[in-house]
Simulated assay, not measured.
Amino acid sequence: MAATGTPRHGTIRDAALAGRLIARGGLVAFPTETVYGLGADARDGRAVARIYEAKGRPAFNPLIVHVADLAAARRIARLDAVAERLAEAFWPGPLTLVLPLAEGHGLASLVLAGLDTVAVRVPAAAPAQAVLRAAGVPVAAPSANPSGRLSPTRAEHVVAGLGDRVDAVLDGGACAVGLESTILRADPPTLLREGGLAAERIEALLGRPLPRDVTPGRVAAPGQLASHYAPARPLAMDVATFAPDAVRIGFGAARGDLSLSPAGDVAEAAASLFDVLHRADALAGARGASRIEVAPVPERGLGRAVNDRLRRAAAPRA
């Protein structure tokens, strides 16, 4: 989806200004360690409505609420002993916990999409922390892209996708993790979305395997739609032999026009995934290629999250 202009306040580098704009009801894209988020005051229904409008996001799809620390999370959600262990081990970081709402949470109903739970995360990236502390409010922030399209890992991805639908874009460079957060329901511990924290690390902490509920009949958390994270052109994954007219994305020994990781490193593939898909989409447009093909990525560690995103990108479009 092409942008129709530039953000109203342009691309900025002042995180404190970004936080103040959010506190005043603005809509600001900012970088986390995972992807760029589209932030608004999670207590302000009108500001949250602007997120859905800007993204074209269905109202049944809930939003992740970002807070600066565990104390702030406790003000909007109830954490049991397991949730406290997970938070202490993995926050700040790329883990979102789906938790029961605290009394007097003050969140706008649109954030929750009719659920009695809230998805909460404490991001680690310094720019995100600076934004949250300057804003002084819980910040609803889904990925800063048109709904269903590729997530942004650079400021220019946000500008290209959303343009003047946002008030400002905080340019903090490339996102270090490059994949959205892992989402976990805490009670009982259940994986709802693969992401930037490998499920094996959570299982090691808990001492047991995690049940998975990543594409349920009813959406319980962000990122569970079957078709999502899609480039403009059709995508095929697990391709062993590339078609001559496709834009080819390699991995390891499988070489292509672009590569997720020439070294065959799944963490590198996770960090580069969305940037490579953005570049492949542009290359396919320039060539008039019919589709994008991706070499197989091992189903281990962060490779599972990479394959989760690729499966949703390759799913039939609604």
Rank of each mutant, 00 (worst) to 15 (best):
M1C: 13
I12A: 10
G19K: 03
I22K: 05
A23T: 05
A23L: 01
A23S: 10
G25Q: 11
L27K: 00
V28Q: 07
T34H: 02
T34E: 10
D41F: 04
D44K: 00
D44S: 09
G45V: 12
K55G: 09
G56C: 02
G56Q: 09
R57Y: 02
R57N: 03
P58D: 07
F60D: 13
N61M: 11
I64P: 05
V65D: 00
V67N: 03
A77R: 00
L79M: 13
L86G: 08
E88A: 15
G93Y: 02
L95C: 09
T96H: 04
L107H: 08
V111C: 13
R121K: 11
V122M: 00
V122H: 02
A126V: 15
V131Q: 00
L132A: 09
L132N: 05
R133M: 11
G136H: 00
V137A: 04
P142W: 04
S143Y: 01
N145V: 00
P146T: 11
P146Y: 04
P146C: 12
P152E: 09
E156H: 14
V158N: 02
V159Q: 09
V159E: 11
A160T: 05
D167Q: 07
L170Q: 05
V177W: 10
G178P: 05
R185I: 12
A186N: 10
D187I: 08
P188I: 08
L197R: 02
R201K: 15
E203S: 07
A204D: 13
L205T: 10
L210R: 09
R212P: 01
R212V: 13
V214C: 14
V214E: 14
V214L: 13
P216C: 06
A220Q: 15
A220F: 13
A220S: 14
A221D: 06
L225F: 14
R233A: 15
D238E: 15
A243W: 12
D245E: 15
V247P: 03
R248L: 07
F251M: 10
A253I: 11
G256Y: 12
A263V: 07
D265R: 08
V266G: 05
A270H: 04
S272G: 13
V276Q: 05
V276I: 13
L277E: 08
R279A: 12
A280E: 04
R287E: 02
R287M: 09
S290P: 15
I292H: 07
V294Y: 02
E299Q: 15
R309V: 01
A313Y: 00
R317D: 05
